[in-house]
Amino acid sequence: MEVTKQSVSGTLESSDIMITIEKSTIGNQIELNSTVEKQFGDSIRKTINTTLREFEINNAKVGAIDKGALDCIIIARLKAAIYHSVSDEDKQSEVFKA
């Protein structure tokens, strides 16, 4: 799946994460700013990477401002951001119907 335009999902409320996704030319890049970086920084990056791979996204720049979101919330916000950043054709994909 190809990221074609920038999109944003989530908020800066406590327990939420705000994710910005846009096109990249040098593979996947993640820029994470988290209130729980020390405890969960690596885990959050892993969750984002795994989700990107699930959608076969290989050229995306992901900016994430995390206020202590649980994994399920991170995945949901990232999926929403991906949905709004891909082509109409990709939006029909099975992965969004699950």
Binding site: V36, K38, Q39, F40, G41, D42, S43, L70, D71
Partner: peptide, 9 residues
């Protein structure tokens, strides 16, 4: 189960 095990300080 919800948070994962935090990395030790």
């Amino acid at each position: 189960t919800m948070t994962g095990i935090p990395k030790a300080i």
